[in-house]
């Protein structure tokens, strides 16, 4: 299981990354995260929705209600231009962290 702090920190980039592939709604997002992480990331609804709303307040996403073919009511979220820029910023930061860790954890190159 992933620690709470790390989950919290990664929610935003993960959400934006999912939405950049197309608009989506809460329930489906949770399913997607679970799927992609192979079950290691399991988000709770009480955590997801407040974050989505915060992203919306910040202008990174917009939402609208839509009715599915089955007649179900769903609130879809869509990434905005601002959201894309934010994701870009997040990505470079995460990549920095990632690269640093990779370099640190690589077996040291043999020195003759």
């Amino acid at each position: 299981m992933i620690s709470k702090a790390l989950v919290a920190a990664s929610t935003k980039p993960i959400l934006l990354s999912i939405l950049v592939r197309g608009e989506n709604y809460g329930y489906q997002i949770i399913q997607r995260v679970k799927e992609i992480s192979g079950g290691t990331l399991e988000w709770a609804d009480n955590m997801l929705y407040p974050v989505l709303h915060r992203l919306e307040d910040d202008g990174f996403v917009v939402s609208h209600w839509r009715i599915s073919e089955g007649g179900r009511l769903r609130k879809y979220y869509q990434i905005t231009e601002l959201g894309r820029k934010e994701l870009e910023a997040e990505r470079s930061q995460w990549m920095d962290v990632h690269n640093s860790l990779c370099r640190l954890w690589e077996p040291a190159p043999a020195r003759d």
Binding site: G26, Y27, D45, Y49, H53, R74
Partner: peptide
Amino acid sequence: DGDIAELESHLREEIA
């Protein structure tokens, strides 16, 4: 109202 509607929609997905 909007929050609750969203949560209800979530709940209904799960029930389904």
